[in-house]
Each structure stands twice: as C-alpha cells, then as structure tokens.
Design a protein around this nucleic acid. Sequence first.
DNA 1: GACCAAGTACAACGATCGTTGCAATCACTA
DNA 2: TAGTGATTGCAACGATCGTTGTACTTGGTC
Lengths: 194, 194
Amino acid sequence: MPTDKQRTLLDGALRLFARDGYARASIDALAAEAGVSSRTIYNHYGDKAGLFRAVILDSSDHVAERQIALADALLGRVVDLEADLVEFGVRWATPEPDFAPHFRLVRHIEADLDNIDPATVAAWHERGPLRVRHALAAHLGRLSDAGLLAIEDPLLAAVHLVHLTATSVAAVPDADREAVVRAGVKVFLRAYGA
Amino acid sequence: MPTDKQRTLLDGALRLFARDGYARASIDALAAEAGVSSRTIYNHYGDKAGLFRAVILDSSDHVAERQIALADALLGRVVDLEADLVEFGVRWATPEPDFAPHFRLVRHIEADLDNIDPATVAAWHERGPLRVRHALAAHLGRLSDAGLLAIEDPLLAAVHLVHLTATSVAAVPDADREAVVRAGVKVFLRAYGA
DNA sequence: GACCAAGTACAACGATCGTTGCAATCACTA
DNA sequence: TAGTGATTGCAACGATCGTTGTACTTGGTC
C-alpha cells in the first residue's frame, strides 16, 4: 500500500537507476527526481541499498504480472496455435515503453552481481523471471497434454520460446520485429509441434 | 604491439572493470592491480574512458578470434552434423574461465549504454559480436548450400543457434550443461535440418 | 659516461557522494 | 485548538574520485 509520494519515488528511482546504474545514481538525484527530500528516503528505506531493493522488487512484480497476464490471454484458450504464438511473441518483444527502464535495470543487476546484496538478487530472480518462466511452462505443458505440442521439458521449452522470439528480436534491432518473431515461432513449432 | 606492462594493465583493468563496473573501478585501483603508476595510465590512454575503450576492444578481439576459431574447427569440415553442433555448443557455452571477465564486462556495457561513448560501443559491437555472428552465419550458409541444412536467413539462424545453446545454458545454470546444449541443438536441427 | 624517453612518487585541486543530526514545517486527528 | 507524526531544509562529516603538475628515478642507446 504505497502512498502517492512513495509511488512517485519508486517510479523515479527506477528511471534513474536504470539509466545511470546503482553507483552513478545519487541519493540527491533520486530524491529530486521524485520531488522528495533525500532525508525522506533514509527515513523510509534506511539506506541506498534498501531503496534499490524496494525498486527492483516493485518493478519486477509489475512486469511479471503483466507478462503472465499476456500468456494467460493468448495461450489460455488457443484458437490458431501458430498465430497465437506469433502474437504472444510480438507483444512480449515489444513491451510497453514503460517497461524499458525495468529491463535496463535488470541488465545492471546482471552486470553488478558481485556488488549487490545476494538476498536482493535472489528475491528478484524468484519473484520475477523464474515466476514468469514457470507460468509460461505451465501453459506449454498444458498445450502439450492437449496434444497441440510435443514437449518433454516444459521449462526448457519456455526458455527456448522466449529466446527464439524476444531475445532474438533484441539481438537484431535493425530487422522487422514481427518477421523475426514469426521466424522464431516457426523454429519453435518445427521442433515442438505435435 | 603492447608491451608486457601494457598487457598486464589491460588484463588487470578487464578484471576490475568486469567486477566493479566503469564507475566503481577507480583509476588508482586499476593502476595498483597492474602494479603501475596511475600517472602512466593517463600518459598512455588520456583518461579513464580511453583506458576503458582500449580494454573492451582488446578483450573482444581476443574472444572473437577464439570463437571464430572454434567455429572453423568444428563446422569447417563436418563429419557428424549433430555431434559437431553439440560439441560446438558445449565448447561455446563453457568458455575458458579466462573469458568470464569479458562477458561480465559486456553485460556492464549493455547496462551502461547511456553513459558510454557511442563510438566505443559501436566499435566493440562491430569487431566483437557482429563479426562472430557473420562468421558463424557463413558456416551455416555453406552447410546449407551443401545440402546438410535448409536455411533461408543464415544470420538469423546463427542468432538462433547461439540462443538455443549458450544463452539457454546461462539461463538454466542448475541444469546439466551438455543436456541443455543437446536439447538446443535438437531443436535447431528439427527446424533447420535438410 | 651522457642523453633521452618512459615510468614513478607525491601532493594537491575541486567535485561528488552517502549518511547523519537538528530544528523547522506541514497535514491531520482528537 | 492543541498535539502528533511525517516531511523538509540545511549544514556538516569523512571519504572517494578523476585529473594534473612537478620533480625524481630508471632503462636502454649513442
């Protein structure tokens, strides 16, 4: 139950941490971005690491819920499997621009693993990427049980699907997003099609 | 033609930049790591950004050459396509531990894109990942021409192969490396097999 | 041995930063 | 209106950092 000011602070801190990283983003800049006194940050979160932990957990919760909702919507009741997977991949690979700071922050975490509290990293990983992966794997497993796919290891298949679509789109930024996703889904279906 | 001291400096700076990131790695620490005066760094590279540029270009050249050599060795003359691809994937996904700092540094670059000289980023990207991707795509295209694979877009296929093997291994660190690679290669071959 | 480039040690500068204490202020409830 | 808890502005601290200038030393060449 974060108040309005806390919401503004978490959002602003996400932007600054994402753009500048943990070390470069100064407490004063974080406070100014949210129109808050730097003293308030210390009153609420103890220190800089506490604020960072709150920011990444808050953000990854939002993103995970959105991604899981996307999977539920498009893979819950499948009409045309290939078309639904393509739309799933396209929507996944073109996240709301609001989410760009989140994924940039994730890269900072992956780069800064030796300088971030391991408990924070573990909490983010479980509640974010792992939770989403399991949700996606559940859908794929269900589609496999229904005879629409032939999957031995749903968790690995979930990893493959994401890497063949969203990750590949990020790796080839000049190309047409939908074409890359379509090609990735085609690969996925040739490998996992029933 | 870097002298011994410059070699030691580049290697030590790679380690520190990789572990601590650009902002946290101080010039004095970088100098101490290599047993060099901090003044020498300024004499050689002008400023911190200049040293960073030299470090990432040097390191990505080494890694790219090693990866291209691996592709040449295993995909140059193919005996058993699936076995060769699996060994290629395993060797790619288990790089010499010497290369761990490089890949950690790459993550820092991807996270810090807004704070690094764009010319440095572009130079690294061209001489590193893009060069390797083109080399790998050339092998895949040749195998396709030879009738061992059926590939429309070799560059995209190269991206798929790497993501299905090395990237997937990194995403599932608890699992058996070779099993993950083997599954990834199986997916690749079902999609791109002749 | 003289010379020269390269490297070093040292001090100093301005700047930035995380963190704390304290007094003043504000919003809101009894 | 009095009181209470959250918020703020401000000053200050010790620490770290990038960078530069300068004088000194070192290693190798004529």
